[in-house]
C-alpha cells in the first residue's frame, strides 16, 4: 500500500484554517495527523477517497453525473427565484463559479454568514 506524507497541510474544519499539519496517508485514507487538534484529526480521518456514495442521485435513484448535471441545469433554468446557498465548505474557486452561476440564473446567493 502506498504511503504518502504531506507537510504543511491545511485543515479546513473550522475557521482557524491551521496550515501547519503533517498528514500521513495509506492508500485511500489518512492514518496519522501531526499538530491537528481533536476536531481536525477527526475531520481528516473521517474523509476517505473510497467510492462510498453513488456518483449522483436523481429522486433518490443512482444516476450518472452527466444526467444529474442536466437535471440540475433544467431545474435552475426553469426557476424564477432560485437560491444558491452554502458556500462555506467549498473552495474560493468554486465559490466564484457559484456566484457566476447565480448571476446567470438570476438567483439569490447566500452563505452560512446569514444564519
Amino acid at each position: 500500500m502506498t504511503h504518502t506524507v504531506v507537510k504543511n497541510a491545511t485543515c479546513t474544519f473550522c475557521g482557524c484554517v491551521c496550515d501547519d499539519m503533517e498528514l500521513h496517508a495509506e492508500g485511500d485514507r489518512i492514518v496519522k495527523t501531526k499538530l491537528a487538534c481533536g476536531l481536525g484529526e477527526a475531520w481528516f480521518k473521517n474523509h476517505t477517497a473510497e467510492h462510498l456514495y453513488p456518483d449522483a442521485l436523481i429522486d433518490g435513484q443512482p444516476s450518472s453525473v452527466e444526467e444529474a448535471v442536466q437535471a440540475a441545469a433544467d431545474y435552475l433554468y426553469e426557476a424564477d427565484m432560485p437560491l444558491v446557498y452554502g458556500l462555506s465548505n467549498i473552495t474560493c474557486e468554486a465559490q466564484r463559479a457559484a456566484v457566476a452561476l447565480a448571476e446567470r440564473i438570476g438567483g439569490v446567493v447566500d452563505s452560512h454568514t446569514s444564519l
Partner: peptide, 10 residues
C-alpha cells in the same frame, strides 16, 4: 419565496 435551491457543501 424560492422555487428551486442549489445547496453547496451545507
Amino acid at each position: 419565496d424560492n422555487d428551486a435551491a442549489l445547496i453547496l457543501g451545507a
